[in-house]
Write a protein that binds this DNA or RNA. Structure first.
Length: 1103
RNA sequence: GCCGGGAUGGCGAAAUUGGUAGACGCACGGGACUCAAAAUCCCGCGGUGGCGACACCAUGCGGGUUCGAUUCCCGCUCCCGGCACCA
């Protein structure tokens, strides 16, 4: 009891004011005058932070040193003190001196906490506080005082243990100095009286603190920093997520697209792997043997770029990144089976790329031909499309050229039909299947030859009869007025020999990169060659043009042009004054050669087409094809848009192609026994061509066939090769073959999760690769991914600036001062480093190269992994594209804290058997666990709560398992818990329902917040483990309803509600609706024209 | 340019098969508690009009189908993803 005689101020240094609630805790020894010892463990509830008021400080720099009653020697104190500020918004301005006042018990356990000490109160003496139970019999309180020494410089991260604590804003570095241990008469702080049993949970919550603390059974506050490492340690010790390769349970194999180890995780990863993790836990609870592995897509361009920038070899950079990101993954608590980790840059992995390459080469599925690449003439090197900005090299600013070089190709087109057909059976999003269909682009058309005119034939002398073209509009063949060829086409080359202007044009056309988007949007230019081919039917001469938009290597590098019915040909013909000849009549719609109209392209009836007049599309096409065949000039053909997959890269950081080039024997495969061809991992590229080609120790070798001197292929494989089968290697990462029987157990994937940006290339290559493996007898599956979830992109703002050279430099948002208009739209920015303006490039995917990724580390450190996981899952559905924002993270943390408090409140009063269905797992010897009560006899309130609970269990299961929409699952649980906290009933049976509600709520949320759920479950069901729990069962008896509410509309507008018996017939409902007052007001005596009754939903009365 | 997707309060979003538009949150405003704050709790929160009961308007824009449209159809605008060497 405080001594009323002692003035409040006498106990504390004068001018103390509360800064914030905080907690203090300890493990290490307290040393006076030194920093408090950092500790990750927090076990104490909110205490006080006290300090002089701001005003006083301004008035007076120096304060009198406090004096204390019975202050012992601090150095002799046996106390272990750890300090942690918990309140999210403690602000300690520079130049303040603040104090932490901590009550401590003699037993070396910090106890107690709480509200305001009576001593600080002004005015009349306070009502004597009730002492805390644990201190009631003590006459004196021991208090530890810590002084927070203010710093002088401002900065967000103080060099003190406090920086490890969530959401502490400290202005200026902090130093914590243990000041004194004092003994005060009576309890220093009080706690509120225990809540009466009939008080609602929300009211209890309203007091801002649990009614009683019992540190031995449960912490009163949510401390993710303490819980998460403990839980993770436990998982690691018990190998909780290591999946057996055989099990009586059905298998469930779920994989996320493996990350590129760019340095740090970003929010897209957090989203991706948290979705996967939630699914992991859900399916495990549903009784499956679940496997969730992880690996690293460790080859690729960024490692080379980093090497160039920092001089660190790609291998080292990559391994360092992997180590860091793996730690982050572990801190996120994802249920990854790390025993199966695969890094694609390890020889043990990529040797199978090489081995498989050789098998496909033997089968003719891999072949060599020339391909077009971006060439930087300044660096004399091949550029990736990403490295070409506006037609120039990103480092040199030099205008990029197209160049043809020999490359290895995979004959994916051989599988085109199967890749198209087997899409139908896949459990993939329809949009992705559609994109793949369009990409494969099967089209039926006619391939034919436009014979060379006699003059041209003489000049060409290439042994060919003419110009081969393909068309899907053979019906318009009579509308051909010219032909166009690529600049590299032999006809163009021939014509340029005596045409200087044409030669210049062809040279000009080489400029610029090879990206389709650029080619499709550039200005279409052309030039006549003066050479002619003949129309296959009329024999009329048709002039051959060179078009910069026609690409060699796509088809035959030549197209027929029908400007009358093709928009691009029309525009080209108009530009160069070429003839436009309409030959199709679309339902009599007008035709004018002056302006393009959309219907010119539609199918219709042939006119102006000689023999084909009057025929419709199909008939005309058939007739044209038949006539061409008769003349030996062509035939119908199926054409695919899909092109063979070029896998050669003139880069260093990739799988070496296992080929030796021998002057005598040509290309020779490296014998299996010599695999892998190991990539030297200590080279540093300089941007001028592949380092491998400059490293004789790598490329100098002997021919395996003739043993003569030979040179290795210094190209490496496309990284899509690595990612085409890694998911099979996970199943058997140590197998002495490419895959073994374990792959047969796990494959195919039951769920594959990754970004929508991979909808076409990666997914198509992996499908192709799987089929190729199947055809070599390595796997038995036709398709790798039975189900697919395509995650939406996480976007962020992009800022860039041109470098002096003409290259491009990207800026991370935190490196900039950004200006926005009133609506919050970004207007511009300046770089912090030099104050110069930076241009805003809009919004785009988070990526390393654009430097706009957001590292989750800060969020994990402030709030813990569960909050980060919860936040990304509750914000939006997985498939939605999201613009990054962390505005409402705080709200997610608060929810977890609230959930913690709810369970704490309940557990503090003692756990009870849950209501309803018997617990499948109970603590040892608890026969009564589970109760046998049913809904009979429950109050309306409890019935409603149980109805809601069991509806929620159903909904959440549906959301997790079928819809994969986690935000609505979380919302449903929150709704249910809101109902729970409003509960007025606190009878014993209500406590049983509460037990049921809290247990199930923890189970429902456990896939998303597994750490917190583990800790909460341990409180609710001591002695049992969360991971062993099955998904909660739905109690059908809780879902029985006798009345249902219908919506009543008049003329489609909501006019009222109607409670009807669940068994009511349509007629009864109609009669009740018509009798309804709200309805009568609007029906206004008119006779209803029609009454629509939708059972279980609504009644609509039409008047 | 072509292919796929998206647009709903100040913000993230919900409405699952054409059936109550805005669940659940964030932010904000008001209140309780406090000397004061933090934390916590309670109330309010699309717009317009009205003291109010309530009425009307409202899901990017313009049309249409329907008893009823965020949802289906037609035509646009803007944004995002992919376009074969970023991964």
């Amino acid at each position: 009891m405080p001594d009323p005689e002692v003035p409040a101020r006498s106990r504390f240094p004068p001018g103390f004011a509360k800064i914030s609630s905080a907690a203090l805790l300890t493990t290490g020894p307290l040393t006076a005058g030194g920093d408090a010892v950092p500790s990750p463990i927090l076990r104490v509830p909110a205490a006080m932070v006290r300090g002089p008021s701001k005003n006083e400080l301004i008035e007076s720099e120096s304060r009198p040193e406090p004096t204390f009653v019975n202050a012992p020697e601090p150095t002799k104190s046996p106390l272990n003190v750890v300090l942690a500020l918990l309140a999210p918004t403690v602000i300690v301005p520079p130049r303040w001196t603040s104090w932490l006042v901590l009550p401590v018990s003699e037993a070396n356990v910090l106890s107690l906490a709480s509200t305001r000490p009576p001593s600080i109160r002004r005015g009349p003496p306070p009502v004597p506080p009730r002492p805390c139970a644990s201190m009631r019999d003590r006459e004196r309180s021991t208090v530890a005082l810590f002084r927070i020494v203010p710093g002088t410089s401002a900065g967000p991260t103080p060099p003190s243990p406090i920086c490890n604590v969530p959401a502490l804003t400290v202005v200026g570095p902090l130093q914590i100095v243990a000041e004194s241990i004092v003994s005060l008469p009576g309890p220093v702080f009080t706690r509120p009286p225990p809540a009466p049993v009939n008080q609602s949970a929300r009211q209890i919550k309203g007091l801002g603190r649990p009614p009683c603390y019992n540190f031995r059974s449960m912490e009163s506050q949510y401390h993710p920093r303490a819980i998460e490492p403990q839980v993770q340690k436990r998982w690691a010790e018990t190998r909780a997520f290591v999946a057996p390769d055989a099990s009586p349970k059905p298998k469930y194999y779920c994989v996320s697209m493996l990350p590129y180890p760019s340095g740090k995780l970003h929010m897209g990863h957090v989203r991706n792997y948290t979705i996967n993790d939630a699914l992991y836990h859900f399916m495990r609870m549903k009784g499956f043997n679940v496997l969730m592995p992880m690996g690293w897509d460790a080859f690729g361009l960024p490692a080379e770029n980093a090497a160039m920038a920092n001089g660190v070899p790609p291998g080292q950079w990559t391994r360092d990144n992997i180590a860091y990101m793996k730690k982050q993954c572990q801190a996120m608590g994802w249920a990854i089976d790390w025993t199966r980790e695969v890094a694609t840059c390890s020889p043990a992995y990529y040797r199978w790329n090489q081995w498989f390459f050789l098998r496909l080469w033997e089968k003719g599925v891999i072949y060599k031909k020339t391909g077009v690449v971006n060439w930087d003439p300044a660096d004399m090197t091949v550029l990736a499309n990403e490295q070409v900005i506006d037609g120039r090299g990103w480092r040199t600013g030099a205008v990029v050229e197209k160049r043809e070089i020999p490359m290895w190709y995979m004959r994916i087109t051989q599988y085109a039909d199967e890749l198209l057909d087997s899409l139908d059976g896949l459990g993939w999003p329809e949009q992705v299947k559609q994109m793949q269909r369009n990409w494969i682009g099967r089209s039926e058309g006619v391939e034919f030859t436009l014979p060379y005119a006699p003059e041209t034939a003489k000049r060409m002398a290439d042994g060919k009869a003419g110009l081969k073209v393909f068309t899907t509009r053979a019906d318009t063949i009579m509308g051909i007025t010219f032909a166009a060829v690529a600049p590299e086409h032999p006809i163009a080359t021939e014509a340029a020999k005596d045409n200087a202007r044409l030669a210049v044009f062809i040279e000009e056309s080489r400029k610029g990169g090879v990206q389709e988007a650029d080619l499709a949007t550039m200005e279409k230019k052309g030039m006549p060659t003066g050479l002619f081919v003949l129309h296959p039917f009329t024999g009329d001469p048709v002039e051959v043009w060179v078009g910069n938009y026609v690409l060699m290597g796509y088809g035959e590098g030549a197209v027929m042009a029908v400007p009358g019915h093709d928009e691009r040909d029309f525009a080209f013909a108009q530009k160069y004054g070429l003839e436009i000849k309409p030959v199709i009549d679309v339902g009599g719609q007008p035709y004018s050669t002056g302006a393009w109209q959309p219907w010119y392209e539609q199918h219709g009836r042939n006119v102006n087409s000689g023999n084909y007049n009057g025929l419709e599309f199909q008939g005309a096409t058939d007739a044209v094809a038949a006539d061409l065949t008769a003349k030996g000039l062509g035939a119908k053909r199926i054409q695919f848009r899909l092109r063979d997959w070029g896998i050669s890269r003139q880069r260093y950081w990739g799988t070496p192609i296992p080929i030796v080039q021998c002057a005598k024997c040509g290309d020779v495969g490296v014998p299996d026994g010599e695999l892998p061809v190991v990539l030297p991992d200590n080279l540093v590229p300089d941007g001028s061509g592949s380092p491998l080609a400059k490293t004789p120790s790598f490329f100098e070798t002997r021919c395996p066939k003739c043993d003569g001197p030979a040179r290795r292929d210094t190209d490496t494989m496309d990284t899509f090769v690595d990612s085409s089968w890694y998911f099979l290697r996970y199943t058997c990462p140590d197998a002495p073959s490419m895959v073994d029987e374990r792959a047969q157990y796990w494959a195919p994937l039951d769920m594959y999760i990754g970004g929508i940006e991979h909808a076409i290339l990666h997914l198509l290559y992996a499908r192709f690769w799987t089929k190729a493996m199947r055809d070599l007898g390595l796997v038995k599956i036709d398709e790798p991914f039975s189900n697919l979830l395509t995650q939406g992109m996480v976007l962020n703002h992009i800022f860039s600036r041109r470098t002096d050279k003409g290259g491009i430099e990207y800026f991370a948002p935190e490196e900039l001062d950004i200006t926005s208009d009133e609506e919050g739209k970004v207007q511009g920015a300046t770089a912090k480093k030099d104050g110069k303006p930076v241009s805003y490039d809009g919004i785009g995917t988070m990526s390393k190269s654009k430097r706009n990724g957001v590292d989750p580390q800060d969020m994990i450190e402030r709030y813990g992994a569960d909050t980060a996981r919860f936040y990304v899952m509750q914000a939006s559905p997985p498939t939605d594209t999201v613009l990054w924002s962390d505005e409402s993270v705080e709200g997610s943390f608060k929810f977890l804290r609230r959930l913690w408090a709810m369970v704490h409140d309940h557990v503090s009063a003692g756990i009870v058997p849950r209501f309803g269905s018997p617990s499948p797992i109970g603590p040892p010897g608890s026969g009564t666990w589970g109760g046998e009560g049913r809904d009979e006899g429950l109050s309306k309130e409890l019935q409603d709560l149980r109805f809601k609970l069991h509806k929620t269990i159903e909904k959440v299961a549906d959301d997790y398992g079928r819809r994969m929409q986690f935000n609505t699952a979380i919302a449903a649980v929150r709704e249910m818990l809101n109902l729970y906290t409003d509960l007025k009933d606190h009878s014993p049976v209500a406590r049983q329902v509460a037990q049921e509600v809290l247990e199930d709520a923890v189970l429902l949320l456990s896939p998303i917040i597994p750490h917190a759920a583990t800790a909460l479950w341990a409180e609710l069901r001591p002695g049992t483990g969360l991971l062993e729990q099955p998904w909660p069962a739905v109690d059908a008896s809780a879902l029985v309803q006798d009345t249902i509410q219908l919506v009543v509309q008049v003329n489609g507008k909501l006019r009222g509600h109607l409670d009807v018996p669940a068994s009511a017939s349509k007629d009864q409902i109609e009669a009740m609706a018509l009798a309804n007052d709200d309805v009568q007001k609007f029906v206004n005596g008119q006779k209803p024209k029609k009454v629509v009754v939708v059972p279980g939903r609504l009644v609509n009365i039409v008047v």
